[in-house]
Design a protein around this nucleic acid. Structure first.
Length: 264
DNA sequence: ATCGGTACCTGCACGC
DNA sequence: TGCGTGCAGGTACCGA
């Protein structure tokens, strides 16, 4: 489900959590705790209040008034819902003084962790794509030999882009997914930088992309999927030149692009 | 240090 | 109807 625009939308939608008191925390699936002890976690959370909810790349940080963070990653199919009925894939339930927070994840690629400090895996993320300057972006590109698509998916390079927005940004910039990062000239780097900014900004405004089952914390779908130009449009005509959109694998991920509009 | 491949898990759409 | 295949927003880990 979730790349930067979806996670941003979820974080905004769960703003009502701020100030809520956690009465109890129940964890039903040890796997999503990634080795964390459910009893320790319940004890840590029970009795604290939620001070802040924020996003770092695709991670959600919920800070507690007593210190410490509940760190959540939604993986591919994770959902955070304010209330609702627990289902087959509900792995965590926080009971609040008003309402509840449910964590749902059918594929169990997401995780829930508790940490006293911002954990290493969050601290080592690259810069936010909507905060980095063009000069820093261009300088970072020059140092990398990887194919541009793989690099855009690397969270230590930029945090928050995923398969949808990487493909959409590359299309808008006219850059082929297999292009080598270090070989992009300044003009093309600038087009890419601007395309990333535009696509993320538009997607956030649209509440993200609901490709299969993504919804925000209040159960609302996004509608940026209607603005996708290449993602999952294999064989359909390019909206710019009419040639069929192609799908190839780059770094084992589907990459959708126009063979005529995107040059290496 | 950086890379490419693989593993993790469930559900769905498809062809037979 | 059922079964096998391939695909899906993610990252971690391994060896090269």
């Amino acid at each position: 489900m979730p790349e930067l625009p979806e996670v941003e939308t979820v974080v905004r939608s769960i703003a009502p959590l701020v100030g809520r008191h956690i009465l109890a925390a129940e964890f039903r699936c040890p796997r999503v705790l990634r080795g964390g002890d459910p009893d320790v976690l319940s004890a840590r959370l029970g009795g604290s209040s939620i001070a802040r909810v924020e996003r770092r790349g695709k991670f959600i940080l919920i800070s507690l008034d007593r210190g410490g963070y509940l760190v959540i990653h939604l993986g591919m199919t994770g959902r955070l819902l304010l209330g609702g009925t627990p289902g087959k894939h509900t792995h965590a339930i926080l009971t609040l003084d008003r309402g509840a927070l449910l964590y749902d994840d059918s594929r169990q690629f997401g995780c829930i962790l508790y940490s006293d400090e911002v954990p290493e895996r969050v601290r080592r993320l690259g810069p936010e794509p909507l905060e980095i300057s063009f000069e820093d972006f261009a300088a970072a590109l020059k140092k990398r030999k990887a194919r541009i698509k793989a690099l855009l998916l690397n969270q230590r390079f930029l945090r928050g882009l995923g398969n949808i927005y990487a493909d959409e940004a590359l299309f808008r910039a006219g850059v082929h997914p297999l292009a080598l990062a270090s070989r992009l000239r300044r003009g093309r780097a600038l087009r890419l930088y601007d395309a990333i900014t535009a696509v993320l900004t538009e997607a956030i405004a649209a509440g993200g992309s609901s490709v299969s089952d993504y919804v925000d914390g209040q159960g609302r779908k996004g509608f940026f999927q209607f603005s996708h130009r290449v993602y999952q449009r294999t064989g359909e005509p390019c909206l710019h030149c009419g040639k069929p959109i192609r799908r190839i694998l780059v770094a084992q991920r589907s990459s959708h692009y126009c063979p005529a509009c995107q040059k290496r």
